[in-house]
Design a protein around this nucleic acid. Structure first.
Lengths: 345, 345
DNA sequence: CCCGCCCGTGACAACGTTGTCCAGGCTCTA
DNA sequence: TAGAGCCTGGACAACGTTGTCACGGGCGGG
């Protein structure tokens, strides 16, 4: 029985296809296609019959097949570090909104800060033939994307620049922001200012460190190694680093923290600490205004990063963009109290 | 020139296909397929030639085409309310991790709490032939998914139950959690307790309200309408609602807030308020322990919700799951100070 | 009244992949 | 040495859709 053979195909649920709809409506395959896509050239009567068959069978167009034929998938990929991080939520949402405005869906994946996983994800997305790729780099070598980009996959890097290839980047002004933040502490009389941040291997961390150094240099303050703690990631290590800076013969009177996770941990340490220590953090954190004192931060606009990147991506797809560019978005110093505390010694 | 004609197909970037690789390697099409998929039956020498051609051309298998042939897309869809909400970030991440463990990618979309948009998104995902769908409902009628489910799309609802269809649901114990939270306030001597939450149209809001009523009833406290504010969503309206409850001849001495957004706004209002008012909030919020006083909350485990739902989804796909079930995960009361304040009158 | 044009419709190929099946050449054994 | 069996490799169809083209009938104009 060939009928049964066809029905027991490889699809689990055996969805009806245009062929089935056509058979039921007693029309040709292409006519169904026309109705489904709202193309002109179908009599109202024929259209009604087709619609009826569609209803009855519960037909839904298979976009996978459509995509195969048309060449564009109307979907874009987003590779980020961790969707659960409050910084990436708004970014991701902003990318999604732009995609939606262009009729595209968003596929996203978390690299967990692992370069191999970033590559695996990005290439998997390319295999799905996403039209474009927004990448928040975990690694620093993106040559693996060269064939893809050459093949027409629009690509924009966000938050951190691409490594070893020439591509569009949308970044925050990490250097300037950190410099401003630290200068703010200097302006309030601090001379011994600590820095706790990520590994300088990560571009943003390196830039913020550079800003920190520049601000101290501007003020003619020599930088002590004991004030800097780089590459600490776990809360325990951040805690230890902070406590070390705050003890000893020449403790710091202020701390500049390199990202939101570090900031939160340092707030906890300072809350238990007797002496009042000033704090400025990179990245805004929720409820920062309600703490005692409010937390002064250098805020990035995560949504703007995502939006800008996605818009650029679609302009690449339009063909209206050719030359890769590096865009830097400004940061904003938000004073809330913790950064305005005077030195406690 | 047929060569050129073929090359100027509909694809923008004209990626090489297995046919191109086969031609270059001087082998048959299927042999390339075998190499790409690691199937046995290819001499090392032939395999080397094929690999070489793949390298040279920058070939990458087109998974869209593969999917069309195989019937499974190895991707699942997640429809949530807002990726930028700190509650959904971890949930989404948890779903992604489970998907990854099963070799699937995650496509997600935000409904913005709009039922029409939820439907549009869910159906778009079905058109892409996702293998399964995790939905955080915005609407309360999901009959539109019936044909899809019948056709074999695995479906799990999270956070809120499905409307008007019988399907798997993974929920928090909203009723029990709210009841415990309010009972906690009662136990600390409060008799006039306010409730600020979402529209009861939303299942979670209704359940939490029910828990609130039950706790008061348990304590023999009659519920006053003036204590309840339902359907307030914007910060301004939350603020107004809170201020109304706190003024008048018989002001509330404690407030129970129905979700994290409301909680945050109410914290702001209370911070400006002279009298000490107790507060218990549904949903945990970051830094809640660092505020003065710490914020007592009824915490849900967003990651566990996502993980449980996704695991159930894949068990549906395995075929090891047949009967729809409703799973309720427990909540946890975390006492931090604000819920233990005594009545201030 | 007849020719030509336009409109609605359908047959067919193609998108890039994988499953089926068969052919040819090799080795091993009787 | 011949036959059987195995192993490698390739031709072909199919997945569900859309673009191309051709066909037939109705209508308007000459």
């Amino acid at each position: 029985m060939p009928e049964t053979a066809r029905l027991s195909g490889n699809r689990y649920g055996n969805r009806p296809t245009m062929k089935d709809v056509a058979a039921r409506a007693g029309v040709g395959l292409k006519t169904v296609s026309r109705v489904v896509n709202g193309e002109p050239g179908v009599t109202p009567e024929t259209e009604r019959r087709v619609q009826e068959a569609i209803e009855a069978l519960g037909f839904r167009r298979n976009d996978s097949a459509r995509v195969l034929r048309k060449g564009r998938t109307a979907s874009i990929g987003l590779v980020l570090e961790d969707l659960a991080d409050p910084f990436y939520g708004p970014l991701s949402r902003a990318v999604e909104e732009v995609a939606r405005a262009h009729g595209a869906l968003l596929i996203n994946g978390s690299s967990a800060e692992d370069p191999d996983r970033e590559q695996e994800l990005a290439l998997a997305l390319c295999a799905r033939r996403v039209d474009g790729l927004v990448v928040i780099p975990a690694g620093d070598d993106h040559r693996y994307l060269e064939p893809e980009i050459k093949a027409g996959v629009a690509t924009v890097f966000v938050d951190r620049p691409a490594g070893k290839i020439d591509a569009d980047c949308v970044l925050s002004d990490n250097y300037g922001g950190a410099r401003d933040g630290v200068a703010h502490l200097v302006a309030h009389g601090h001379r011994r200012i600590g820095f706790i941040g990520d590994m300088p291997r990560i571009h943003t961390a390196a830039e913020r460190l550079r800003g920190y150094r520049a601000a101290l240099e501007d003020a003619g303050i020599p930088v002590a190694d004991a004030w800097m703690s780089l590459g600490v990631t776990t809360p325990e290590r951040v805690r230890r680093a902070a406590e070390e800076m705050l003890s000893g013969p020449e403790p710091v009177t202020a701390i500049f923290t390199g990202n939101n996770r570090v900031t939160v941990t340092v707030i906890r340490v300072l809350a238990e600490h007797a002496r009042r220590v000033a704090l400025v953090g990179f990245d805004d954190i929720e409820l920062a205004d309600l703490l005692q004192p409010g937390v002064t931060v250098v805020a990035q606009d995560a949504a703007a990063l995502g939006r800008t990147a996605a818009e650029r991506l679609f302009r690449q797809l339009d063909g209206s963009l050719v030359v890769p560019e590096r865009i830097e978005l400004p940061t904003r110093l938000i004073t809330r109290g913790s950064g305005e505390l005077p030195p406690a010694d």
